[in-house]
């Protein structure tokens, strides 16, 4: 077993994942250094969401290795994985309609010390304070996305998995989400971000991995994104 590098918060090696009989991930390899924002870029259906779900243990049928702060996650149920300090913001947002906005924020239990207080979260997302009593599903798309992010900040998790947080949102809201992600990085969070929009990704991330058909086919540091634009467009089919 290779020595784990303490500067790497998450190391994914030769990760395979299946839904029933279909083999979706075919040996993913990538790593997320502590304190960085790292993206997984790729077309629809490339396996980005499946990678997130495999890390969180939501997809249980997986092989290979996922190490978080040196600890192996493959084989653990998702509640144990969350307790180690990973928090997941799903692509479909997963706002609970039977809970109001504040109950949604308070739902995920604190798993580690050092999470934000409700006041801090309200400071960061004033809209969510105003709408605290509204039913979770009566929010606009932007508000729902803010709520999905806000909800995982109380837990004390140090690694945030954000699956396409800008999908389907107006440019102004996308900018706000960019501000929030940079703010979270400033507070020391490590973030694994799934994106299809590499122009947005370039404004927040430190490095990018390109996913195709369940494997990582390329990677580049953010400062090389300019000279690699053509190549990325080909990968993403835009």
């Amino acid at each position: 077993m290779p020595e784990s590098n303490p500067a790497l918060q998450l190391e994914v090696s030769d990760l395979h994942a299946h839904y029933g009989e279909s083999h979706i991930l075919h040996g993913m390899n990538f790593a997320v250094p502590k304190g960085e924002v790292v993206t997984l870029l790729g077309r629809n259906g490339a396996g980005k969401t499946t990678t997130m779900k495999a890390i969180m243990g939501i997809v249980q049928k997986r092989g290979g290795s996922i190490r978080f702060e040196g600890q192996e996650l493959v084989g653990l149920p998702s509640n144990r994985i969350a307790r180690l300090g990973l928090a997941y913001c799903p692509e479909e947002r997963g706002i609970f309609s039977s809970l109001n906005v504040t109950e949604n924020i308070l739902l995920p239990p604190a798993v580690k010390p050092g999470g934000m207080s409700l006041e801090e979260i309200h400071g960061l997302f004033p809209r969510l304070k105003e709408r605290g009593g509204s039913q979770g599903t009566k929010l606009s798309g932007g508000e729902a996305q803010m709520l999905a992010i806000a909800r995982i900040l109380r837990t004390g998790a140090s690694l945030l998995l954000l699956d396409e947080p800008t999908e389907g949102l107006a440019p102004l809201i996308v900018q706000q989400i960019g501000d929030i992600i940079r703010g979270l990085k400033g507070r020391g969070y490590t973030i694994l971000l799934v994106e299809q929009n590499f122009r947005f990704a370039a404004t927040v991330a430190d490095r990018h991995f390109v996913v195709e058909n369940g494997v990582v086919v390329d990677w580049l540091p953010n400062d090389q994104i300019e000279q690699s634009t053509e190549k990325l467009k080909r990968y993403l089919g835009v």
């Binding site: 509640n79 969350a82 307790r83 039977s98 739902l107």
Partner: peptide, 25 residues
């Protein structure tokens, strides 16, 4: 109560509630 909010949320989406660290089984 908090326990009740776990129950309500678990009724809607048990997978996600478990991924937040709650022992849903």
């Amino acid at each position: 109560t908090k326990l009740g909010s776990y129950l309500r949320a678990g009724t809607e989406n048990p997978t996600l509630v478990q991924a937040f660290g709650i022992n849903v089984p």
